[in-house]
């Protein structure tokens, strides 16, 4: 697969990155976060399907993997560049257009809370074409609908190469739905993102 040149979108630069993963997603996430430099400028919002009783240990684990500060946000946390925000277990994480994070305990979506679709859809509305959305390994189809919304809003949509993914169902579902602009390996995704804010 071709590694595309890091690019600027026609109208300006990207403003935010959202990443979703489930089974096997953490391994890929690890590779991607390691590739991001300490002066990475964009906010990174992550939904990883967690056990509902996780008490912040996932956020601590991520923090040990990246040079960027990792935050498990409270409701209305202001989103700042160069930080990684990871959805708390048992809450959906949404992006508000005023640049803050909203949380919700509403019903599971695709059997998941947090759900990737919920994050991606709200982020697409907040950032439109300035958003990069990345869907990683996983065993269900959460994220496909959200990627569709991101793509429709003009954002860049990336799926982890199913051949590399530990669990190919999730990225493959998005590819089959025709909502993915780039299919890349985790290490390529990391490089592409790192170049975005260079």
């Amino acid at each position: 697969m071709r590694v595309s040149e890091p690019r600027r979108r026609p109208g300006g630069t990207y403003q935010a990155v959202v990443i979703g993963g489930s089974a096997g997603g953490v391994e890929a996430l690890q590779v991607i976060l390691l590739a991001l430099p300490h002066d990475f400028m964009l906010p990174v919002l992550v939904v990883e399907h967690l056990h509902h009783s996780d008490d912040g240990s996932f956020a601590l684990h991520l923090a040990s993997l990246t040079q960027l500060p990792v935050i498990e946000p409270c409701d209305k946390t202001r989103i700042e560049g160069g930080r990684v925000y990871t959805a708390p277990a048992n809450y959906h994480m949404l992006v508000e257009r005023d640049g803050t994070i909203g949380l919700s305990v509403e019903e599971r979506v695709n059997w998941s809370r947090p759900s990737i679709d919920v994050l991606f859809e709200s982020a697409a509305l907040a950032w439109g074409e300035a958003l990069v959305a990345v869907l990683l390994s996983g065993a269900n189809a959460d994220g496909t609908k959200g990627l569709g919304t991101v793509k429709k809003a003009g954002g860049l949509t990336i799926a982890q190469d199913p051949a590399e993914a530990k669990s190919r169902v999730m990225p493959q579902a998005a590819i089959n739905a025709g909502v993915v602009s780039e299919v890349l390996r985790a290490e390529q995704i990391g490089r592409l993102l790192a170049a975005l804010s260079g």
């Binding site: 949404l94 992006v95 508000e96 257009r97 909203g102 919700s104 509403e106 919920v118 859809e121 709200s122 509305l125 907040a126």
Partner: peptide, 9 residues
């Protein structure tokens, strides 16, 4: 109300 959530509903 928090906008993103009510819009979703």
């Amino acid at each position: 109300y928090a906008r993103a959530s009510i819009e979703r509903r």
